[in-house]
Design a binder for these strands. Structure first.
Lengths: 238, 238
DNA sequence: TCAATGTCGATTGTCGACAATATCCTTGAC
DNA sequence: GTCAAGGATATTGTCGACAATCGACATTGA
C-alpha cells in the first residue's frame, strides 16, 4: 500500500475489512440461516439447481457451500442423491450434549488454569447480553445464539484452538436442535441466571468448582432438551 | 426377491457392495495418500489445474476433494489463493495431543462402562497387528496406520458416534505429524507393548485404570513426538 | 395379484471456457 | 540501490452445458 501518511484514512481505516470471504461463504451463511430459522425442514432435500436459481447464480458455489455446511453437521451428503438437511433425533442430541460436556469441562479447566484474565470480562459482558435478550423478549434464535456465544467464549479462552474448532463444528447442530424445540426455557431470565455459577467459579479461580458448574449447567440443559425433544418426536410419529 | 431356494446365491450374496463412492472420494484418498507419504510437502500449494491434468480429469472433482480434505485438517484453504498442505508445528501437535487425551479418556471410560464385549476382541486383534508390523519391519506409514486404528477402535466402541467422528477428523493430522518425524519409536516392538496395559484395564473392567492407561500412553507419545518435532524444527530453521 | 423389468423425468456428476484475482517480473523514479 | 507502480502470467472463481445416475411409475409376465 502507498499512502504512508494516512491521508485517505486519517485515523486508521474506517471500514470493516469487508468480508474477503467469497460468494461461497455468503451462500453457506444464507443456507445455514434458512435451515436454523426452520425455513427448510430437517430431512428436506437441498436442490442445487433450485437454490442456485433462487440466488441468481450457478450451481458450483451452491455445491461448495453445501459441502461446507456438511462439515458443520447441518447438512448430509449422499452420493448421486444430493444434499439433505440433517435430521435430528433425541438420541443424537443426547450424544451431542454428552460430547459437549466432555469438551467444555476440559476447556474450562484450562481456562481457569490460565487465569482467564482476558476471557472473564468477555464472559461477564456475554452474560449481560443474555439478560438483555431475556428482558427484551427477543426471539428464540437470538436467545440460543447468545447462549452458544457464551459457551464458545469458554472454548476460545482455553488456550487450545482445537477446542474452539470442534465446538464451532458442533455448535450449529446444537442450535438446530434447540430451535426445533421452539423454546428452551419457559423463563429465559432463569436460563441466563444459570450461567452465574460458572462465572463465579472462574472468577474465584476454582478449577474444580468451574468444572462442576459447567457440568451441572450443560447436564441440566441436556436432560431438559432431550426430554422436550422426545415429546416432540412422540407427537410427530406416535 | 424370488429364487427362494437360493439357487443363484446358495449361501447369501457373493458380491461385495462395490464401493459407491464417486470420483471425488477417490481423488481425496489419492491426495491424502500423497500428502501423508510426503510426496507433497507441508505448505505447498495444491494447484487444481495441475492435479486435474495429472489425474486426467477436470478441476471440479479436484476442488471438491480438496474441500473434503480441508475438513479433516490435511489441507488449508485461502480464498482466491487456493489449497495448501497444512503446515505442522510442534505447538500444533502439542495441542492436538492434548485434545486427543481429552477425547480418548472420555471414550475409553464409556467403553469400559458399556462392558466392551464387542470391542475387546477387535482391540486384541489390532494389537496383534501392531506386533506384526513391528516384526515385519514395515514402513513408517503402516506402523502409524496400525497405531491409529487401535485408538480409533476405542472411540468407535464408546457408544457415542460423535467421538469417532471427531477422532477421524483429527486422525489424519496426527498421522501427518508422525510421518513427518520419520520415526516414532526407535523400537516399534516396544511401541506395540505400550498398548498392553490399556487392553488389560479394559478387560478387567477397571474404568479408572483404563483412563489412566490411555492417559499415560498418549501422554508419553505426546512428549516424545513433540520433542522429536521440535528437534526437527530447530534443524530446519535455526 | 404381485414381483420383476423397462422407461421416463428430474437431479447430480463432470466438463471446458471465460472472468476475476493474485503473483511475479519488469520498469522507472528517487 | 531501493522501492513503488504497472503490466504479464498463472491461478482461482464462476458459469452454462452435457453425461451419468437415481427414484418413480408404467409395463410385462407368471
Amino acid at each position: 500500500m502507498s499512502d504512508p501518511l494516512n491521508l485517505v484514512f486519517p485515523s486508521g481505516p474506517r471500514f470493516q475489512p469487508l468480508g474477503r470471504d467469497g460468494l461461497v461463504d455468503r451462500v453457506a451463511n444464507l443456507l445455514a440461516e434458512a435451515i436454523m430459522a426452520g425455513r427448510i425442514l430437517p430431512g428436506a432435500r437441498l436442490s442445487e439447481s433450485t437454490i442456485a436459481r433462487d440466488m441468481g447464480l450457478s450451481r458450483a458455489p451452491v455445491r461448495e457451500a453445501a459441502r461446507l455446511l456438511e462439515s458443520s453437521g447441518l447438512v448430509e451428503y449422499r452420493t448421486n442423491r444430493g444434499f439433505f438437511v440433517q435430521t435430528v433425533s433425541s438420541a443424537a442430541l443426547d450424544n451431542l450434549y454428552e460430547f459437549r460436556i466432555v469438551i467444555e469441562r476440559a476447556a474450562i479447566a484450562r481456562l481457569v488454569a490460565s487465569g482467564a484474565q482476558d476471557t472473564l470480562p468477555l464472559l461477564r459482558a456475554q452474560l449481560a447480553e443474555l439478560y438483555r435478550v431475556a428482558q427484551a423478549g427477543e426471539d428464540m434464535t437470538r436467545q440460543v445464539e447468545a447462549d452458544m456465544t457464551f459457551h464458545r467464549l469458554i472454548c476460545r479462552g482455553s488456550g487450545n484452538p482445537r477446542f474452539l474448532t470442534v465446538f464451532d463444528q458442533i455448535a450449529n447442530e446444537t442450535k438446530l436442535g434447540l430451535i426445533l424445540i421452539g423454546r428452551l426455557y419457559d423463563d429465559p431470565h432463569r436460563m441466563a441466571e444459570t450461567h452465574e455459577p460458572i462465572i463465579e467459579a472462574i472468577a474465584a479461580g476454582d478449577s474444580d468448582a468451574a468444572v462442576n458448574a459447567i457440568d451441572y449447567h450443560i447436564g441440566t440443559a441436556r436432560t431438559l432438551v432431550c426430554h422436550r425433544f422426545r415429546l416432540l418426536e412422540d407427537k410427530t410419529a406416535p
